[in-house]
């Protein structure tokens, strides 16, 4: 059986909120290392990969592998019933028909309990190759969100060009063109504002802004976002969570003939 207790319901609320517009039905794969999710969007352009390590829960118990097939719209409805600061416990039997969610207020004696019916989801797992990326950029997640939203007003696509000069996000559309360039920057007082660029070779790739703006819904999960790029492979956008847990998005590039 599964029993996983989260100190704050907020974490799961934010994770589900960040991915629910990209993927609808998905398996939450539970085993003794934690709860994982991997799903492609309908158009097979983006891939979501979430890992909530067992250390992110206390306690965490999962005796055998259980796949919880959950509709994210249903999960969102139930998670709305939890206050952000509620303690959240997920429970399921070994061959479950439902997943049980318990919300407890730390300040009062309220205890709410919900069951969500599970679905059989036949989802193929993709192997994500270990990649030594040519460029890795860490930057404030709010800054990345603003850049994507700003450029989307002008164009459907953004080119991300990383050289030793910095990283340039550029677009052009019917009304004109625009670009934002960032250079490495260290703020000792506020390290969450740092921009760090780690480059082994120059990279230039083009991506759909619609998806990037969608990924940025995860900005509330982490002050910093990490972008990993290599020529002609999907972009990795990573939001690191505590205890080595993470929410990752992969986006296939647009490539010319």
């Amino acid at each position: 059986m599964l029993e996983a207790r989260l100190e704050q319901a907020n974490l799961l609320k934010k994770v589900v909120d960040a991915i629910k517009d990209l993927v609808q039905d998905c398996n939450f794969d539970c085993n003794d290392s934690g709860i994982a999710l991997q799903a492609m969007d309908n158009s097979h352009v983006a891939l979501v990969s979430m890992m909530l390590k067992s250390e992110s829960f206390s306690p965490f118990r999962c005796d055998r592998n259980i796949a919880l097939g959950i509709n994210l719209t249903s999960l969102t409805k139930v998670l709305r019933c939890a206050a952000n600061e509620d303690i959240l416990t997920l429970k399921a039997e070994d061959a479950p028909d439902v997943v049980n969610l318990v919300f407890e207020s730390a300040e009062s004696d309220r205890l709410s309990e919900y069951d969500i019916k599970l679905m059989d989801i036949d989802q193929e797992h993709l192997g994500i190759p270990e990649t030594e990326y040519a460029a890795t950029i860490s930057m404030p997640s709010a800054e990345f969100q603003k850049i994507c939203r700003d450029l989307m007003a002008l164009s459907e696509s953004v080119s991300i060009e990383c050289t030793k000069e910095g990283v340039k996000f550029a677009c052009s559309g019917d009304i004109g063109s625009g670009s934002v360039t960032l250079r490495s920057h260290t703020n000792v007082e506020k390290p969450q504002l740092n921009v760090e660029i780690d480059l082994s070779e120059p990279v230039a790739l083009t991506f759909s802004l619609k998806y990037l703006v969608n990924f940025c819904k995860a900005s509330g999960l982490s002050e910093q976002v990490r972008l990993c790029l290599s020529n002609e492979v999907p972009l990795l956008v990573e939001y690191a969570l505590s205890n080595n847990s993470y929410l990752r998005f992969y986006l296939a590039p647009k490539i010319g003939d």
Binding site: M40, H125, L126, S208, V233, Y250, A252, K254, G256
Partner: peptide, 14 residues
Amino acid sequence: QKKQQSISNFFTPR
């Protein structure tokens, strides 16, 4: 004209 690629062109089923 750049063409949107699919994730499955890069990552294959396990």
